[in-house]
Structure formats: C-alpha cells, structure tokens
C-alpha cells in the first residue's frame, strides 16, 4: 500500500466518523426520523475488510450485507454518501428512494444488498448471495457484517452449518463490540470468544484486534483469499467498541465511563493518524486540513443534497410492493 492509499484510508475513516456525527446532529434537529444506529468507533473493521474486497466497481463488486448499523458499510462498498444521507432524510434521491431509511440502506448498483433490522437475518441471506455467485461462477464472494449479539440467533447456527456443508464462498465478519444492545457479552453468551463457536460447524475462523486498520486489513486479506480461492466460508472476529449508544435512545447505563475511556484511547482513527504521522506520511496540520475538507464536503455537498432533494410522491406510495411491470403471461388475469 502506497502513501497515497494510506492517506486515502485515513480520510475515509475521518469521513465515516464525521458522517455519523453529522447524522447525529440532523437527528437531534428531527430531520432524520426512526431509529439511528451509528458506527463511530468501529470504522477500522468495515474500512479495513472492504478495502481487501472487490468494492467500488459496480455490479462486479463482491456482495455486501449487514444489519441496521449500515451507513458506512454501504459507503465503503461504493454508495455515494449523498445518497445515503438523502436516505436518512427520507428523500426520493436516497439510495432506497426514501422507502428504507437508516436501517435499510440498499444499493444494487454496487451489490450492497441491504441493511436489515432483524438481528441475525442477514446470515442466511449472505449465504444465499454466496450460493448465487457460486452457481453463476462469477468469482464473487459474499461478505456479511454482523455484531456479536447476532450470534445467539438460530439463524447463526443454521447458516454456519449450511455454509459449511455446501462450501459457500461467504465471509462472516463478526464485529464484536461486546454488547448485545445493552447486555454485556458475558451475561448473554456462554462462549465469549465468538470465533470458537463456528468450530462446531467445521468452519475456519480467527480473532483479531478491530481497532487497528492495518491488523484488520492483513487478517481480512487472508480470509478473503481463502474464501475466494477455496470457495469455502470463513468466520472472522474483530474486537471493537462502539463509542455511541446502541441507537439514539440509549443512555449507555450499562457501561462504565472508565471502560469507555479505555477504549477511546484505542480510537481507530487516532491509532492510524499517529502511525501515519510517525511514518512521516502526513503531518498533524495535514490531518487538520483533511478534517476541514471532509467537514466542508459533508456540509456543502452531502447535507445540502439531502436537504434540497424532493420528498417521494404520495401518488407513488404503492410502487415497489410487487413488480410494477409484470409479464401478463405469468400474472394474468385469467381469461375466461
């Protein structure tokens, strides 16, 4: 990876942090409704893993799918931040045309196959995406990002079993932030090391630091190579921490401020910034300028686009329920 790429990665992580911070503000201004789950603190995981995948190349991309904490995964896969913010605003220009919202970011043009609110539901969908890619011999893989809490759903066990017996090319990325909503992992889960749980399904797995993007990228590269070349599933666990609450209504009463302070010292952006400064790739002043450039971009382009975009038309309320242009040979109606 050259210096320009390293700077780009740092800028991406700063953008992701600022994007979420700005979403928070828009939510407080009631411009964003519903539930809002922010990714702050976990940036190194999605950024590092997807940096090693095929992303940003449209329909050639690997398939990416995740839960409701999905804004950043979509952007890193290739979705325009403007379309994500417009979706949070519920606008027609949003990537899901305002029908999905924060928890349901979709962008088929980049093979970002959605954010889902049912915890654990993306496991089987991801395995199915992998099955489709394998069947059609496209050399794509599916990458499924979910939290540690999802691993206590039945879909986890059912899907790990099937992905394993059918040799599906799917990478399961467990973002272990140690809290299932507000319940600490050791209070909800008999085996706290998540990567060990798939041994029961004869699946390869490993656990890594999720706060250091260099470690994430190295581990993800090996895992992705394995999945693609062997056409087999792999389960990779990253230890991470979300800096904000589960969603906006979360007062974080279940965590100590001391614990939070310890993890904030391992802020993935701080770790990477420090490293790039030490390596002489960037100066603290450059980083300040980068932050300013990102803030300006978010304000002058991303937010502006979302603010100025039109609402969906009420006359189009019932579009997209079923195929809007069905073939009468299959649909009918029956001629008598």
């Amino acid at each position: 990876m050259n210096d320009a790429d390293k700077k780009r990665l740092l800028r991406e992580m700063i953008l992701y942090r600022r994007f979420e911070d700005r979403s928070f503000e828009a939510y407080m201004e009631r411009k964003i409704g519903g539930f809002l789950h922010l990714y702050s603190g976990q940036e190194a995981v999605a950024t590092g893993v997807l940096e090693m995948a095929v992303v940003g190349q449209g329909r050639k991309n690997d398939y990416v799918i995740t839960g409701y904490r999905d804004h950043i995964h979509a952007i890193k896969t290739g979705t325009d931040p403007k379309a994500v913010m417009a979706e949070l605003y519920g606008k027609e220009t949003g990537c899901s045309k305002g029908r999905g919202g924060s928890m349901h970011i979709f962008d088929a043009s980049q093979n970002f196959m959605g954010g889902y609110a049912l915890v654990g539901q993306p496991f089987p969908l991801a395995a199915g995406l992998a099955m489709g890619a394998k069947h059609q011999k496209t050399n794509q893989i599916a990458i499924c990002f979910l939290g540690d809490g999802a691993n206590n759903q039945g879909t986890f066990h059912e899907t790990m079993n099937m992905a394993s017996i059918w040799n599906l090319p799917v990478l399961f990325v467990c973002e272990n932030n140690q809290y299932a909503i507000g319940t600490r992992i050791d209070r909800s889960t008999a085996v706290t090391d998540q990567y060990r749980r798939v041994e029961a399904y004869n699946m390869k797995s490993s656990q890594h630091d999720g706060m250091d993007i260099d470690i994430v990228m190295a581990a993800a590269k090996d895992a992705i190579d394995y999945v693609r070349k062997e056409s087999k599933p792999y389960f990779i666990e990253f230890m991470t921490y979300r800096f904000r609450g589960h969603s906006m209504s979360d007062a974080k009463g279940y965590r100590t401020r001391e614990e939070e302070a310890e993890w904030e010292k391992r802020d993935p952006i701080k770790i990477y910034s420090r490293r790039l400064v030490e390596e002489g790739i960037i100066t603290p002043e450059d980083i300040k300028a980068m932050e300013k450039e990102v803030d300006d971009y978010i304000e002058n382009e991303v937010i502006k686009f979302a603010e100025e975009s039109p609402e969906p038309k009420v006359e189009e309320l019932t579009r997209y329920v079923l195929d809007d242009n069905p073939d009468p040979r299959w649909i009918g109606p029956l001629q008598q």
Binding site: M113, F123, G128, G132, A142, T159, M162
Partner: peptide, 13 residues
C-alpha cells in the same frame, strides 16, 4: 428459516 433465507439471498442474485 435459514434455508428459506438462503433461497431468498440466492434469488437476490
């Protein structure tokens, strides 16, 4: 539930 989900995921491709 999950084999139905796998079918759904495959259908999305």
């Amino acid at each position: 539930n999950s084999y139905t989900g796998i079918g759904i995921g495959a259908s999305m491709t």
